[in-house]
């Protein structure tokens, strides 16, 4: 089996994978980073969103081997030196999560949305941008609020 090497949350990691191994499988099964979730098999739900070289990517849709040499950030790597990322804090403060299963992907997408749309991102933009992240618990109301709040603090 081929070996893949990449940077994950700042650490250089490598592991043997099959050609068909997905990035999300490498993260969850090989590295034990179970914060990235799998909620569907058609790349729709967004529970697996991570950042690859700074861009939001659905980890169920990228092959592990395709990420050779790239830098991956998962939900576990978002807080720095024990301090929560403002977007994590905003989700907590605004009750932007209930069961927590979609939350890692939501937060990773949210950070990406703000990076691309700025601190003053509008509600309509957030709602449109969240098309690739499904939440069944919150009705999105508090997720949208959390993203606006987190954006202002990023």
């Amino acid at each position: 089996m081929p070996t893949v090497s990449m940077k994950v949350n700042g650490d250089t990691v490598s592991g043997e994978v099959e050609g068909r191994t997905l990035l999300v499988e490498f993260l969850r099964d090989t590295l034990g980073l179970t914060g990235t979730h799998v909620g569907c098999d058609t790349s729709q739900c967004g529970a697996c969103v991570v950042h690859v070289d700074g861009k939001a990517v659905k980890a169920c849709t990228a092959l592990a081997l395709a990420c050779e040499g790239q830098s991956v950030t998962t939900i576990e790597g978002l807080a720095k030196n024990g301090a929560l990322h403002p977007m994590q804090e905003a989700f907590r403060e605004n009750h932007g999560l209930q069961c927590g299963f979609c939350t890692p992907g939501m937060i990773m997408s949210a950070v990406d949305i703000v990076k691309r749309n700025g601190k003053k991102v509008k509600e309509a933009t957030i709602r449109a941008e969240l098309d690739g992240n499904i939440c069944r618990c919150t009705g999105y109301h508090n997720i949208v609020k959390a993203i606006q709040d987190g954006a202002s603090k990023m």
Binding site: L33, T34, L97, I107
Partner: peptide, 11 residues
């Protein structure tokens, strides 16, 4: 919430 927003939930 802390465990869920940091990826430490245990499903």
């Amino acid at each position: 919430d802390h465990r869920f927003i940091t990826g430490n939930g245990r499903y």
